[in-house]
Design a binder for these strands. Structure first.
Lengths: 203, 203
DNA sequence: GTCTATAGGCAGATAGAC
DNA sequence: GTCTATCTGCCTATAGAC
């Protein structure tokens, strides 16, 4: 969800990343071209190759920026919210914001194309998932300590379940059900997971 | 799960579907070509166009066959198994079998490429998801009746959560964690969902 | 049904002028 | 940094012979 490039003053490289990011999140890495970006940016393909020698380098930069922005958002949640359910709700909100632009999670859609991607991109995608699982594990562990999550389950398994559930909800919702469906699926996931300690589900 | 084309005697059309199906499930619809299939089949691209005029028609046939095969598998579960958890375990097993060949669910990977697909394929993908949700809803409703699933949640929401969770688990697992991760995520989902009526989780 | 041959387009990428 | 021009290769698709 994190804000993409700010106001008006942004270099060609940054604007390229903004456009490429959107194209990948909507259409996938194998379904956009340098020509698409060049047209939208009003420059030539050759100029694009000056900033990003090949598609692989562009992909690397895309993931690196997305990953850093997502990590920032997670730190923001830790800073501003207390309580397991509040943090998890905010986490779901991150995904909702992405889906609002008819986009899929960048690393989620790249995971679908995983077999066709260069090694450097593959490794960075894995790191994105690991970041998310690590953060979720701290939140789940907190939840087990404060009694809002059942203490019998393995926090790592619960974290995987949450990540997978939300990535899948985005994937399916873009074809079938849209934002409303994503949100009901996400809410159901959290409701099923958390024994309402103090938070009251809205229905 | 669903057996692909049987023994030795299969026409060109059927063998084309077998190969195309695998290529799509592994690489995606936008990352395979008629040339890939022709080479593997030992025929020319022109022959392929005789059987399937364009990629859209091939895609339609792919989804139709996959959907029918999946529906058969669901009927098989209903025929052979009783008990909510047993049916749900078998459902997860269907997905595990797909993942074993490093494949993603056909309609899951197509959902990632949704924006780039022809209308006919889009509609068929949605129908696949609806089939699954309808079946899951009957199982969840059964589970609420027999006490193995909490009766307070909406069966439709729980069905979405299950479908989304498994599609997402496949998506992520192919990049990170593989079959083992898919299975632990799937088990965690079912364990969280079902209040162990009689089935004992393996840990 | 399967082939040869080919069309026409677009992909990613590079050389070299400004 | 950005351009023009161009290369090479692959893509989907078609015509027409066998």
């Amino acid at each position: 969800m994190p804000s993409r490039t700010h106001g008006s003053k942004a270099g060609t490289a940054e604007r390229t990343l903004d456009i490429a990011e959107r194209l990948v999140q909507v259409r996938g890495f194998n379904a956009f071209s340098y020509a698409d970006i060049a047209t939208e940016l009003g420059i030539t393909k050759a100029t694009l190759h000056y900033h990003f020698p090949g598609k692989a380098e562009l992909g690397d930069a895309l993931i690196a920026r997305y990953r850093a922005r997502f990590a920032d958002a997670l730190r923001g949640i830790d800073r501003e919210l207390v309580g397991t359910r509040a943090k998890l709700d905010a986490y779901v909100g991150l995904y909702s914001a992405v889906l609002q632009g008819d986009r899929m999670c960048l690393c989620g859609i790249l995971a679908a194309e995983y077999e066709t991607l260069p090694t450097s991109m593959r490794e960075a995608i894995i790191e994105f998932f690991e970041d998310n699982e690590a953060w979720l594990t701290t939140v789940v562990t907190l939840g087990q300590a404060d009694g809002s999550i059942s203490p019998t389950a393995d926090p790592a398994h619960l974290s995987q379940m949450i990540l997978d559930g939300l990535e899948g909800a985005m994937l399916v919702a873009r074809a079938h059900g849209g934002l409303a469906r994503f949100q009901s699926s996400g809410r159901q996931l959290l409701d099923t997971l958390t024994v309402s300690a103090s938070t009251t589900p809205e229905r």
